[in-house]
Design a protein around this nucleic acid. Structure first.
Lengths: 200, 200
DNA sequence: GTCTATATTTCGATAGAC
DNA sequence: GTCTATCGAAATATAGAC
């Protein structure tokens, strides 16, 4: 399992397919996955409902593709995490959080749709598990947090870091008045730095 | 507006009404609000679908009641928050977080259903706003975070605190292996304490 | 690839007896 | 308060022409 030749499942990226995903992402964020009908997606795209079925077999597959793109973002972070041993981990954490913050900021809508439709994404995993048994990044992260070789206090603070990033950076624009995102991001980095005082 | 005589809208708490809410909370957490049909709620309760309509006019009203109970939990925390002035705030923060942690732990399922069905709860606010214009606790908290009288760095760290609590304490049981919740909660308190070094 | 139908199903909600 | 029965309105998905 997990042979080195496993390719990243070449997913076709035709133009209209991308436009469907783009519009779906918008609508799922505005109204939620369940409340968004294929008709609405088709309407905003200027095509009919049936046309969507040429590009995606089921409605669920649209959400699945968005899920896979989130996985692509999280995968190498978790690979880095798994490559470190327990002693290096705390020292490397700020750097990993930096990368994470960059990815969140560069893909806000994608992270947002996951947060706002947690249930829909979660039920996806059941069907997706046929393709990628232990590739679910949430599961991998939970397994990481359950590792007794890492001091519990550190694991708790790592979990806190993730939540802090989401909480402070993923609210819709202007959560802190008119403060620019970069400034907020820098303050979040500082705060998480204080959670891991490397020189004590 | 917000006259002192505004009573907490005496909501009837009959026995079966409570059982409906109990079962609905379970199912909404397991399958999500949209994916849970009234038939499923009725089945698990041993009654028929139509019986539910004696206790709730619409399906939405079941979710609304859960929302109101979350509001009841958050209201006095926000009242305390609004009563403080900007200088006392940082010093009082750890105590407020303590109370918040207690409420989260004592009402895990209630907070969980909100996190997992963010969209459904959010669309509720539109209809609910008729009754409680500026009583939405999320909006109140956002308004608090936008207050320029508080240093931005402090506001960011407060937002981080909330996310940290959710992230570390609301995962289903055993997020950190078999570590007891109280121990994790204590570690979260420590971590947030490090975010606000009162003696520097 | 996109269209016009249409099949099929499920769900929320109501009416009215008991 | 709970039941049986049913309505009406969506929505997903399919069939087949162009």
């Amino acid at each position: 399992m997990s042979s080195p030749t496993r390719n990243p499942v070449t997913r076709p990226r035709t133009l209209t397919r991308e436009r469907i995903l783009e519009v779906a992402l918008e609508l799922f964020n505005e109204q939620g996955y369940e409340k968004t009908s294929l008709r609405e997606i088709a309407d905003r795209l200027g095509v009919t409902k049936a046309a969507l079925y040429y590009h995606f077999q089921r409605k669920e597959d649209i959400l699945l593709e968005l899920h896979l793109r989130l996985h692509d973002l999280g995968r190498d972070l978790l690979d880095q995490l798994d490559a470190l041993d327990e002693q290096e981990l705390v020292a490397a954490w700020p750097s990993l959080i930096d990368q994470f913050i960059e990815k969140v900021l560069a893909n806000r809508e994608l992270f947002l749709v996951h947060q706002r439709n947690e249930q829909a994404f979660h039920q996806l995993a059941d069907n997706e598990r046929h393709q990628a048994e232990n590739d679910d990044i949430e599961q991998r992260f939970r397994r990481f947090l359950a590792n007794p070789a890492i001091p519990l206090a550190d694991r708790v603070r790592m979990a806190c870091s993730i939540g802090a990033v989401f909480s402070a950076l993923m609210g819709a624009g202007g959560m802190f008045g008119d403060a620019p995102v970069e400034e907020v991001a820098a303050l979040v980095r500082d705060a998480i730095g204080d959670l891991f005082p490397s020189h004590r």
